[in-house]
Structure formats: structure tokens, C-alpha cells
């Protein structure tokens, strides 16, 4: 086992956008992880802000839970504006 834990790297590519997962890297601690992320993932001005998160701190939904987690949303079409009919000529709705 490596003594350098794995870190997941999230980058805000420019102001106004969310941080997006860019990849991962190894570092002994958070400060070095942040610096490594800067050197590895923003060499071409890809970012204005970086998060690093220990990979072990991420809890992910599993594919087995996929149906229970995500399928129930499929029939809630009334959550989308296109579900509703608007009389012709009505604006700003």
C-alpha cells in the first residue's frame, strides 16, 4: 500500500462555474495535494480555484442502488416546465 493517499481533484475553470472533477493524484498530505493539483491539472490555465478531497472521504452510490435511487424520478414529469400547456399568446411564463 502506498503511503501517499489518493486525492480527488476538483477545479473551477473560471469564475461563475462550479468545481468539476478533473482527476486524482497522490500526496502525503492535503497541502501537498493542493500544490500537486495546481502543477498537474492547471498547467494550461485550466483553473482559478482547486479543491482536493481524500478519495477515502467520498461515499458513492453504487450501481446496485441505481434503480432505487434514480428510477423513481422518471415519472415525475410535472417537475418540468414543458409538462404544462399555456394558452397561445401568453408571454413571460
Amino acid at each position: 500500500m502506498s503511503r501517499e493517499p489518493l486525492w480527488e481533484v476538483f477545479i473551477r475553470s473560471r469564475r461563475g462555474l462550479s468545481h468539476v472533477h478533473a482527476g486524482s493524484l497522490h500526496a502525503a498530505d492535503a497541502e501537498m495535494a493542493l500544490r500537486n493539483a495546481r502543477d498537474v491539472y492547471t498547467r494550461r490555465q485550466e483553473g482559478v480555484s482547486i479543491w482536493v478531497v481524500p478519495a477515502s472521504a467520498i461515499l458513492a452510490s453504487s450501481p446496485e442502488e441505481k434503480d432505487a435511487f434514480f428510477d423513481p424520478a422518471a415519472d415525475k414529469v410535472y417537475r418540468h416546465p414543458t409538462f404544462y400547456e399555456i394558452p397561445e399568446g401568453v408571454e413571460h411564463l
Binding site: 503511503r3 501517499e4 500526496a27 502525503a28 498530505d29 501537498m32
Partner: peptide, 13 residues
């Protein structure tokens, strides 16, 4: 160097 980094991280933690 890698051992030092790991040892430092342990100490800091």
C-alpha cells in the same frame, strides 16, 4: 523523501 513526507503527514495529523 517520500518517507519523510509520509512521516510529516503522520506527525501533523
Amino acid at each position: 523523501v517520500r518517507e519523510a513526507a509520509a512521516a510529516y503527514a503522520d506527525k501533523q495529523a
